[in-house]
Design a protein around this nucleic acid. Structure first.
Length: 482
RNA sequence: GGCGCUGUAGCCAAGUGGUUUAAGGCGAAGGUCUGCAAAACCUUUAUUCGUCGGUUCGAAUCCGACCGGCGCCUCCA
């Protein structure tokens, strides 16, 4: 039984989809004015793992991630660089997809863009206006927070306390300082769309309400089971989404709210505005996607994670342990023709344990621990038994495929170091290994060691076992890290 | 000021009333194997969970106080 910590109730709740086996999931995507940073990546990857686990459980997940392609920041950048805002958005949308792929994230079913949903957005604002939740002041339309009784239920904030806070911006047009823009009147030189209130563009919060409602529907026929995003979106963004959607639709907006902790740098939130960030693509130049994902999976998604090179390096080291076994398994499956023993090994036990811990609010740190336990136990079995048949290796592969590869995305059987190389390269290495084996037979260790060390310099590591010598290519990313 | 998160070994981190005198990873030390390495395996590395009290037969886990770190309340994953 899966339990999810729900920000709304501040406790773990049993997960019950609205229309099983379907699960509708909406994740707040990027505003495409720049490359996303590794802190953003944490949210994306965490939601990717959640999605993959739900699919593993047998749910049919419809996964929607929005792309905010009209926004103050994009306009600002457009003005600074004297480039059309459309071009800016397009550039970073492409970059976003490149990075998502490199991070081994499954693609969303739909990536709705704000600019392609103007009709839906305008419809929703009209609806809010008709129902008395919105008011128009000279072409700017605001949401009347005072009209929505449950305002603050997600973030635990109270309207009167917020009002007394001096940090809320003062805007004379608003009835209440907490009221937020649904529609912003166009200023000179800004992109705009036509609307019943004049030319303008949508406020930030309305696009998510309109697009999630459009693509995932409203109960009982549709609806959002899970809505996820970073902690900083709880207020005001998600609070406002609830206010808009529930006022317009008259139905509960989202059943489970999931929020991700921040990635910190020297104990300080990584953010664009503070300037203390690394873009995901820069981190990927130095470390593998699997290492990044492992690092994230080793901490609960909701808490903070202090990001550093040291942690990423140790994740990369830990990954080697899994990759070494995966490589061994692949080699055995290809070449093993032994008829002999199939050792006692309870594969099911590990899978049961894995799902047991993941069922507890996606406890990936414990899931990772189960995988490492498994790797150790398989290695031990291999070292204690002389003749293990191929069935054992196939079972081991199956477990790793489901968990490490399929759910956590920290392993990629199709892309293990050796298999990714060209045929000629592999043949040449095999030839050198043969040469070295001959040298060893003649006890010419000087030559044998020279072959090994020279190959090592090229990133090819030789490993002698009793029967044969195997090799692996160390990842170039590892070398860059050293 | 309000709301929320957080303080566990050299580092990262799970666990949130008894199965735990605390998972897992990195690091360190010793050993097995090996011509030597590497990999792998074995052993060791927190009698202790920010501090002080309390509740309980029993607490890292519940309650209170205190100390420290972070975040949101304004765009932000």
């Amino acid at each position: 039984m899966l339990k999810i910590y729900n920000t709304l109730s501040k406790q773990k709740e049993e997960f019950k989809p609205i229309n099983p086996p379907n699960v509708n999931m909406y994740v707040c995507g990027p505003t495409v004015y720049d490359y996303f940073h590794i802190g953003n990546a944490r949210s994306f990857i965490s939601s990717d793992i959640i999605r993959r686990y739900l699919e593993y459980m047998g749910y049919k997940v419809k996964f929607v991630m929005n792309l905010t392609d009209v926004d103050d920041k994009i306009i600002k950048k457009s003005n600074e660089e004297k480039i059309d805002s459309k071009i800016i958005a397009e550039k970073y949308i492409n970059a976003f997809f490149e990075d998502v792929e490199k991070l081994k994230m499954k693609k969303a079913d739909i990536y709705p863009k704000a600019t392609e949903h103007m009709d839906d957005i305008i419809e929703m604002i009209k609806e809010l206006e008709q129902k008395g939740f919105a008011y128009n002041v000279d072409g700017n339309v605001f949401y009347d927070v005072g009209k929505f009784k449950e305002y603050g239920k997600l973030s635990g904030k109270k309207i009167d306390e917020l009002e007394s806070g001096s940090r809320v911006e003062v805007n004379v047009e608003k009835k209440n300082p907490l009221d937020f823009a649904l529609w912003k009147k166009a200023k000179e030189g800004e992109p705009y769309w036509e609307s019943p209130w004049g030319n303008g563009r949508p406020g930030w919060h309305i696009e998510c309400s309109a697009m999630s409602c459009k693509h995932l529907g409203v109960p009982p026929n549709g609806g959002i089971d899970i809505h996820a995003g970073g902690n900083d979106l709880i207020f005001p963004h998600h609070e406002n989404e609830i206010a808009q959607s529930e006022a317009a639709n008259g139905k509960k907006f989202v059943n489970y709210w999931i929020h991700f902790g921040f990635l910190n740098l020297d104990n300080e939130k990584m953010s664009k505005s503070l300037g203390n960030f690394f873009t995901a693509r820069d981190v990927l130049k130095k470390y593998s996607a699997e290492a990044i994902r492992l690092l994230f999976a080793q901490t609960n998604y909701g808490g903070p994670l202090n990001f550093s090179d040291e942690l990423l390096s140790s994740a990369e080291k830990g990954l080697e342990k899994i990759n070494n076994l995966a490589q061994k398994i692949e080699d055995e499956i290809k070449t093993n023709s032994k008829e002999s023993i199939n050792p006692d090994f309870d594969f099911q036990k590990y899978e049961n344990e894995f799902t047991r811990v993941m069922d507890d609010d996606f406890n990936t740190p414990q899931g990772v621990a189960v995988i490492f336990d498994f790797v150790k136990e398989v290695n031990r079995t291999i070292s204690e038994n002389e003749n293990i048949n191929v069935k054992f290796y196939k079972n081991a592969k199956s477990f790793l495929e489901k968990t490490a590869e399929g759910i956590l995305g920290i392993l990629d059987f199709d892309n293990l170091s050796k298999t990714s190389d060209g045929k000629l390269e592999g043949d040449l290495i095999e030839f050198l290994i043969q040469l070295r084996t001959d040298a060893k037979k003649e006890k010419n260790y000087t030559l044998a060691d020279k072959i090994r060390s020279e190959l090592n310099k090229l990133g090819v590591v030789l490993e002698d076992s009793k029967e044969k010598t195997t090799y692996k290519i160390t990842r170039t990313k590892n070398q860059a890290a050293n």
